[in-house]
């Protein structure tokens, strides 16, 4: 289990993270969605023990991560821009990881490289950016980490590889009880594989919860009436968005669906129905509610 407790971080006068509290169970994949500059990478760096938080702490299986080699040995952080030793090959990088992590599995690395068609003895710097990302994932998985942090890791991969890696990571997470945290902007991908999700905006974690709960938290209610419903009548529903097309009215609402439906019934609608939203739509609405990009 990975827990962050009241993480605060500032870079000079800029407050980057505000009291971020998060917990991810073993065997779960958590998706971290956020606007640009929201602090996703900073949060992942803090979790991986690269950056020290100003306040709060990160715990993995009850052990604090900061300056704790035994806890850090169980964490692997995949950056959006992979870093390797100068002029190194995959085999050399494997030896490098092995020096710091005794149980690093070089045979598993070879197996992963064979599966993803990666040459072990060619210089990594000669690979394309997408291939370097594949190398990074293989190097990470060979270490059998308990916590895997992926920072826009799948961006730049072709759809086939993307799918293959998604499957591999999902299997590893379920089979070994790994904690996986995916940060990025690809909501569809997250909706497909994440068990839970959180929205990060301007350093604050706004919404956290199971994927179903978060996605069903906001919905559309559309109904048609004989006469147009006056604006004032809709105020008790606190709609996030109101769209009208003649007698058809589409409300985007947050909160109790049953209560909303009963309120609409009072307008004697010709018909009414509730429509689900995608994760992307939920995220956009949440951000709009925060005043982002208005």
């Amino acid at each position: 289990m990975m827990i962050t407790e009241g993480i605060e971080k500032s870079f000079g006068p800029k407050h980057v993270l505000h009291h971020v509290a998060l917990s991810v169970e073993d065997g779960h994949i958590f998706g971290l969605l956020g606007t640009n500059g929201a602090g996703k990478s900073t949060l992942l760096r803090i979790i991986s023990g690269i950056i020290q938080p100003d306040a709060g702490q990160v715990k993995v299986n009850g052990e604090s991560v900061w300056e704790n080699p035994s806890a850090k040995r169980r964490i692997c952080y995949l950056t959006d821009d992979p870093a390797f030793l100068h002029a190194s090959t995959i085999r050399q990088m494997g030896a490098f990881r092995k020096a710091w992590q005794e149980d690093y599995d070089e045979a598993r690395l070879k197996e992963l490289c064979d599966r993803f068609s990666l040459p072990m003895d060619e210089k990594i710097s000669s690979f394309s950016k997408g291939t370097q990302k594949r190398v990074q994932v293989c190097l990470a998985l060979a270490g059998r980490p308990h916590v895997l942090l992926c920072d826009e890791t799948f961006d730049g991969l072709d759809p086939v590889m993307r799918e293959a890696f998604r499957r591999t990571i999902s299997e590893e997470t379920w089979d070994r009880g790994m904690v996986t945290l995916l940060a990025g902007h690809n909501q569809q991908e997250m909706e497909d594989i994440c068990d839970s999700v959180g929205f990060l905006h301007e350093g604050a974690l706004l919404t956290v919860g199971d994927m179903d709960t978060v996605v069903s938290g906001i919905y559309r209610l559309q109904f048609a009436t004989e006469e147009p419903v006056p604006e004032e009548a809709l105020i008790p529903l606190c709609p996030l968005r109101v769209q009208r097309q003649g007698r058809l009215c589409v409300l985007t609402l947050k909160g109790d669906r049953e209560q909303a439906r009963q309120t609409v019934e009072a307008f004697h609608p010709l018909f009414s129905e509730t429509l689900p939203l995608s994760l992307e739509e939920v995220f956009i609405l949440e951000m709009e509610e925060q005043g982002y990009a208005k």
Partner: peptide, 16 residues
């Protein structure tokens, strides 16, 4: 920055 973070992520203390 990349190299620095790569080493900082390794299971070791900074003093070590």
């Amino acid at each position: 920055k990349k190299q620095s973070m790569m080493y900082a992520a390794l299971p070791q203390t900074r003093g070590g």
